[in-house]
Design a binder for these strands. Structure first.
Lengths: 235, 235
DNA sequence: TAGTGGTCTAGACCACTCT
DNA sequence: GAGTGGTCTAGACCACTAC
């Protein structure tokens, strides 16, 4: 079907049709939908094709599937917003701005207590503590404060962060780790205010990220953005 | 197969194995991976099974697939963070706190200019303008300011928002719409400060959401959270 | 033009869970 | 017990694209 000149995968057609039926109230919220077999008959396709459409809709949170009891339209859709977390460099270059990086500070220290707790580290763990700045068209864009667990990534001691940021280095060394991320609003302290060229106590958007590699804490980073920064997405 | 006592789908095993190989550097970043056929042979399964594993890894952004050229390990993984956007009521009840709602203000007005621009509305559009509060254990949790396009949802004029919030009503009326969402940090103005029981100019976390239903703007909402609020997730 | 991933099929067996 | 979704297979054709 649908050989009308448009070539779209059949399971996408089915997804669209199902969404439309839900939006138009043909299948009400909380209501039971037809079984995969019935839908496969209606759409004249294999059950696997219907299955893929329904599986993706379930992943998006629009429907709820249970063996034996069937597929239901979710009453309160717990929708998910997806944010792409890219390198600052990419974020800036996508805005057609010139990226510039500067290392502010770099030293080996013992972690503060709150960080030891957060990363579940032993008392005398050795860490590398960094501060750096990211600029877009020479305007302050992001202030980055980072701790790296030298136990998890020994090579970091010899790494040179004068010309490129620790994030890019880490991504090359420790690919595809797990992370926990948090967004919040904070007031600029004196240091941030100076680096981000803003008055003290300005509200700033902050992103914190803790990263593990194979259950070993690797790094904690606190990225504070310039005033007015917005994080946006569709869903 | 895989009758070793563990019951996990084979495509999940394959996913894990591939992630492990990437993490251990067996397949380096940017490198070409074996074809689906070769992997199917190695894992002694159908190509469709390998396909599903690789498809999901590609969705997660770990690998990059192109017809004819093959599958590559992504060099700079644009990872995605997923946030679940639920009703305030749910968010609060999940924290085992008691939810309370209060309507502050509700009036039909013309939209301010910036909102007309944002929603692409005609000059004399009619809108419902609402302010309300959400409490957790009687502590201020979220201040909500919302505009609803009465043209898109005429029934809203007769809706009663004294006992439950407009979001719950809208979800029941306009299921599964499209939305755009933005996070930012702002300073509390006098009104917010009073409602959130905080000094003026306190940094606050704010979430703005614009919602469409079938290409028609439905509502714009600005949710401002109590001081110290953090939005968290794993990825 | 040939190789790769993208999709689809018809059928099968299994796991879960409602009754 | 029986019905539903979850997965897998072996094979097929197609679309894209590097060569």
């Amino acid at each position: 079907m649908d050989k009308t000149g448009l070539r779209q995968a059949k399971f996408l057609d089915i997804k669209q049709e199902i969404i439309a039926r839900i939006q138009n109230g043909i299948w009400a919220q909380g209501a039971l939908m037809p079984t995969e077999q019935e839908l496969a008959q209606e759409f004249a396709c294999a059950r696997a094709t219907v299955n893929r459409a329904l599986r993706e809709l379930a992943e998006q949170g629009l429907i709820n599937r249970k063996r034996k009891s069937g597929t239901r339209v979710n009453a309160t859709p717990i929708k998910q917003a997806r944010f792409e977390i890219a390198l600052v460099r990419q974020t800036i270059e996508e805005r057609n701005a010139t990226y510039r990086y500067a290392l502010v500070e770099c030293a080996q220290t013992a972690p503060p207590d709150w960080l030891r707790a957060q990363l579940d580290l032993p008392k005398h763990a050795a860490m590398l503590h960094l501060k750096c700045m990211h600029y877009a068209d020479n305007q302050p864009f992001q202030f980055e404060e980072r701790w790296i667990n030298t136990d998890a990534v020994p090579d970091v001691i010899e790494a040179d962060f004068t010309n490129s940021g620790p994030n890019e280095w880490l991504l090359a060394q420790v690919p595809f780790s797990n992370a926990e991320i948090a967004f919040s609003a904070i007031a600029a302290d004196d240091e941030m205010a100076r680096f981000l060229a803003t008055p003290a106590d300005t509200p700033l958007f902050q992103m914190e990220r803790t990263t593990w590699f194979q259950d070993k804490p690797v790094t904690f980073v606190r990225m504070t953005f310039h005033p007015g920064y917005r994080m946006q997405t569709q869903y």
